[in-house]
């Protein structure tokens, strides 16, 4: 379709509202936040003075909690992805195999995704209760009492207990994406594979799974984006404790900003989070896109 000047003008006009909104609510505030990160703003209602890199220097040199929060955020992201993606793949394959009650199971797996984080966190906090919680009660009932733990309230496993909740909530999402991916594999390829005499396992291993790269990229990117700014379950289940053992960057940023009134420092944490996400998520995507373009040329 050849666009004449008038049509181009319409397209431009219709794009203005979206550009305005994104410009104001994303990029302006991003710039404002970066600007605040260079201010010693510690009082509500009174903007501080320019202090150069002082907030960043404080975070990296004098704030062990911040450094710990970086490590724990990355650990949470890795565990979350490493556990969720295989679980999603396995569940999707099981559903694809045509088990009895397939629709029922598909709904069951997707239900956690529809729960609000607040409802899920209340439910899990009850399940994790050391004395009356269902997890420890079941362990004791089946003679595995020695495995009963203070799940959320010990520095040793609070973070891992939170990771499990995220895996539970999001594995349905991974299943959904992979199930759609598997369903969209062309029948011709599967027929060709069958003519070649592949077994069922070989069909999944050599035909279906290699075609799931786009699904994996989608799940990986969305989960990375989510896990690097993870806040909800951490805030609701442990508040980052005990003794900062489950502290993550977004949680700490909120606390520093709104509980400690150190707005400059909080903005520095959020700016760091932004650039961390850019490096981890956007750069690989950009590089991959550039390679693809070069390949086409």
């Amino acid at each position: 379709m050849i666009l004449n000047r008038r049509n181009k003008l319409y397209i431009f006009l219709f794009l203005i509202p979206a550009c305005l909104l994104v410009g104001i609510f994303v990029y302006t505030f991003l710039a404002w936040s970066i600007n605040v990160s260079f201010k010693d703003w510690n009082t509500i209602g009174k903007m501080g003075n320019f202090c150069g890199w002082e907030n960043y220097r404080t975070l990296f040199n004098e704030d062990p909690v911040f450094v710990r929060a970086i490590k724990q955020t990355l650990l949470l992201a890795v565990l979350f992805i490493v556990l969720t993606i295989p679980l999603g793949v396995i569940t999707a394959i099981l559903l694809d195999l045509g088990v009895k009650g397939k629709r029922f199971f598909r709904t069951i797996y997707l239900i956690p995704l529809s729960f609000s984080f607040v409802a899920s966190s209340i439910m899990w906090s009850w399940m994790y209760m050391p004395n009356q919680g269902v997890i420890n009660s079941v362990l004791r009932a089946v003679g595995l009492g020695f495995l009963a733990q203070p799940w959320l309230t010990s520095t040793k496993q609070a973070l891992f207990s939170i990771v499990l909740v995220y895996v539970w909530q999001f594995s349905g999402f991974a299943t959904l994406i992979y199930y759609s991916g598997i369903a969209s594999v062309p029948e011709t390829l599967l027929d060709a594979a069958e003519i070649d005499g592949v077994t069922r396992t070989q069909k999944y291993r050599f035909v279906i799974l290699p075609l799931q790269k786009p699904a994996t990229l989608t799940v990986l990117l969305l989960m990375l984006m989510y896990s690097l700014r993870v806040f909800d379950f951490v805030w609701l289940l442990t508040g980052g404790g005990p003794a900062y053992s489950s502290e993550v960057l977004a949680n700490y940023m909120y606390r520093v900003t709104f509980n400690y009134n150190r707005f400059g420092l909080g903005a520095a944490i959020s700016t760091f989070m932004f650039f961390l996400s850019v490096i981890i998520i956007i750069l690989p995507v950009l590089i991959s896109s550039i390679r693809k373009l070069r390949g086409k040329v």
Binding site: S154, T155, G240, G241, P242, A243, Y244, R255, N259, Y260, N261, R262
Partner: peptide, 19 residues
Amino acid sequence: PPEEYLGVLGSMLSGFMEN
């Protein structure tokens, strides 16, 4: 004390409760 006192000392004390 300043508003942050509760949060900072609370986190520290939760570590002592365990160890």
